[in-house]
């Protein structure tokens, strides 16, 4: 079984994100970067699926500048076999361009499954997996909670949806996007990190893949979220009830 998995480089989800004073973009001073947490879950899922299938190959893809090789090496240290970096200014891409780059790679690589995070914790768009599936004409299972292989030709996937857990079955090739509770990603071991340095990493570009990066969705500005007015501390349950009834009028 061959699996393609994505590893997007994003701002650390635990760092405080703020706009630059002129609101032209995000203030990236003192902000760390790491692999999108949902991509880590996708990498773990890819490795587990190959294990379950008995044999196979996992190829990790990142789109970005040369710093994104760090996320590729991390995925290879976890166990992915090889990497592909598509060099591009990630800030200048929209979800559609990313999906078309990945589609071009899938045409070349012919994976059985593409695994992606359900969303990146920076843009929060939640589009790429679905767009990719449609461009390829493949079935999809978004928000995956459990994946069970049906032999090598398909899978039954449980999905986290409004109101409960939905089960679907699909045949490969297919796109699967990961939700939080699919697995606990492994840490890279020291031997894994050493091995990752020698694993093959191919570099390419969107134009080499024949993908036009003109934007369908374009940023025209940012604003900070509305601030909540400072609240008050109450000392007792009675005082809380009085405030909720008299001041906020919500009970």
């Amino acid at each position: 079984m061959k699996i393609l998995v994505t590893a997007k480089r994003v701002t650390d989800p635990d760092s405080k994100i703020q706009l630059k004073p002129d609101r032209s973009g995000i203030n990236l001073d003192n902000v760390d970067f790491k692999m999108n947490p949902f991509c880590e879950i996708a990498v773990e899922a890819a490795l587990q699926l190959v294990d379950a299938a008995g044999d196979g190959e996992t190829v990790v893809v990142a789109i970005g500048d040369s710093d994104a090789t760090k996320e590729i090496r991390t995925a290879m240290a976890m166990g992915c076999d090889r990497g592909i970096l598509v060099e591009a200014d990630e800030a200048q891409l929209d979800s559609d361009a990313v999906a078309r780059v990945l589609a071009a790679i899938c045409v070349k690589e012919k994976p059985d499954v593409v695994l992606l995070g359900k969303q990146a914790i920076d843009g929060d768009s939640n589009q790429v997996g679905q767009l990719l599936a449609e461009y390829l004409g493949w079935p999809q299972a978004t928000f995956a909670y459990k994946i069970a292989l049906n032999g090598t030709s398909g899978a039954t996937v449980q999905r986290e949806v409004d109101g409960g857990v939905e089960t679907i079955s699909l045949s490969f090739p297919a796109v699967i996007t990961t939700d939080l509770r699919l697995n606990e990603p492994r840490y890279a071991s020291l031997p894994g990190i050493m091995k990752a340095k020698k694993k093959p990493l191919e570099e390419t570009t969107a134009s080499a893949l024949g993908v036009d990066l003109s934007l369908k969705v374009e940023s025209i500005g940012f604003e900070p979220p509305p601030a909540r007015k400072a609240g008050v501390k109450v000392k007792t349950v009675d005082e809380l009830i009085e405030k909720l009834a008299g001041e906020a009028k919500v009970i």
Partner: peptide, 30 residues
């Protein structure tokens, strides 16, 4: 093209600007 999880719509140069939360709502993008 698609804008996800839009929280407000406004006129923008004869078209529409879409406001949407990014970075867990720490930033609103247009």
């Amino acid at each position: 093209g698609m804008a996800s999880d839009v929280v407000a719509l406004s006129a923008h140069g004869g078209g529409v600007a879409y406001k949407r939360p990014m970075w867990a709502g720490n930033v609103l993008g247009h």
